[in-house]
């Protein structure tokens, strides 16, 4: 197990390094942040001053070397725009995004798994067929369009839920959290459901496929021959086997939920990381973009690690070993 953790850590470090080189190199090929940030009326002296203060006068390799040295001490550079450490900026926005992603994930599981099981057990019933039709819609309708329709219906016409922003927050261990206030929950509902819709469809389809497949297996027939009631067969014997593929996909999807909630955050003006990165790209705020992508890599690695560990908990045949 320790060998496994060590090798995973090594993998993450290598990924981080490769990612930083690619992003650093890539960012230097597109545009010049000074042109974007400085007003056209700035004098050449002012311009030189800014270039120097950002360290853009040095050769690229030297800039990268400085970045790398600082990164190792936990300093990912200051934002060109806010003149604050990029890492702090991102961490400030992170709780909002994590909250949104967690709420969406919870919805996906709570709605997706039972619906998927039902559709797998009675694949030919009318209700199962409606579930599958719904899931196709969930897959194919664009998120932004559904988000806009939801705002139209629930916020504008019915007036039930607010259309934008984050509600009242409460500090829990120094982190602002909105799920403990009614106002916060009301603000969270629409964006979370919007973000969850695609994942619900995904969970339904995977669960259904897993249940359909597992129900055909010998041990289910044997469980019936043991005289177990159908309820126990489904909730214990079948579900635990269906969880295995589900965990893999959920793990990957959770990463993308957090990293790329951009569209939903933009539509609902949710003050999360997605909005920050979009703004940063628009003004070529290199340190923020770089720091954001680094954090994404770390997050993906952590989630994958959690998935692997969960995997070995659910499926005793999986042994964690370094390679």
């Amino acid at each position: 197990m320790s060998g496994y953790l060590f090798s995973r850590l090594l993998q993450t470090a290598v990924t981080l390094f490769v990612m930083s080189v690619l992003v650093f190199g890539g960012l230097h090929m597109v545009g010049n942040p000074v042109d974007v940030l400085l007003s056209p009326t700035a004098t050449p002296a002012e311009r030189l001053e800014v270039i120097k203060s950002f360290g853009l006068d040095r050769p690229v390799w030297e800039q990268y070397w400085i970045f790398l040295k600082n990164a190792l001490t936990g300093n990912l550079g200051n934002s060109f725009v806010f003149n604050q450490p990029a890492l702090d900026l991102i961490l400030q926005r992170m709780p909002a995004t994590l909250e949104l992603a967690a709420a969406a994930l919870l919805m996906a599981l709570v709605l997706g798994i039972p619906l998927g099981i039902y559709a797998g057990l009675k694949p030919n019933g009318w209700f199962a067929k409606s579930i599958m039709t719904f899931s196709i819609l969930g897959f194919s309708l664009p998120t932004f369009w559904i988000g806009l329709v939801m705002i139209m219906v629930f916020a504008v016409q019915l007036g039930w839920l607010p259309s934008s922003g984050r509600g009242d927050t409460v500090d829990v261990l120094g982190v602002p959290v909105s799920i403990f206030t009614m106002d916060g929950l009301a603000h969270l509902a629409l964006p979370a459901f919007n973000l969850a819709l695609f994942k619900i469809s995904l969970v339904i389809r995977i669960t259904r496929a897993g249940v359909l497949e597992t129900m055909q297996l010998d041990f289910v027939r044997f469980a019936r021959a043991k005289g177990l009631p159908e309820k126990r067969i489904v909730t214990v014997h079948v579900l635990k086997n269906t969880l295995i593929p589900l965990i893999t996909v959920i793990g990957l999807e959770l990463g993308s939920l957090i990293a790329f909630a951009v569209v939903t955050e933009t539509i609902f003006a949710w003050p999360g990381m997605g909005k920050l990165i979009i703004d940063a790209i628009a003004v070529l705020d290199r340190p923020v973009i770089l720091a954001y992508l680094m954090i994404t890599v770390v997050m993906f690695s952590l989630i994958n690690l959690a998935v692997d560990i969960l995997y070995s908990v659910v499926d005793p045949r999986v042994r964690l070993e370094g390679n």
Binding site: F219, F222, H237, K240, D315, R317
Partner: peptide
């Protein structure tokens, strides 16, 4: 080999 549930 398949009569028993592998994850229980």
């Amino acid at each position: 080999m398949t009569s028993l549930n592998p994850v229980l």
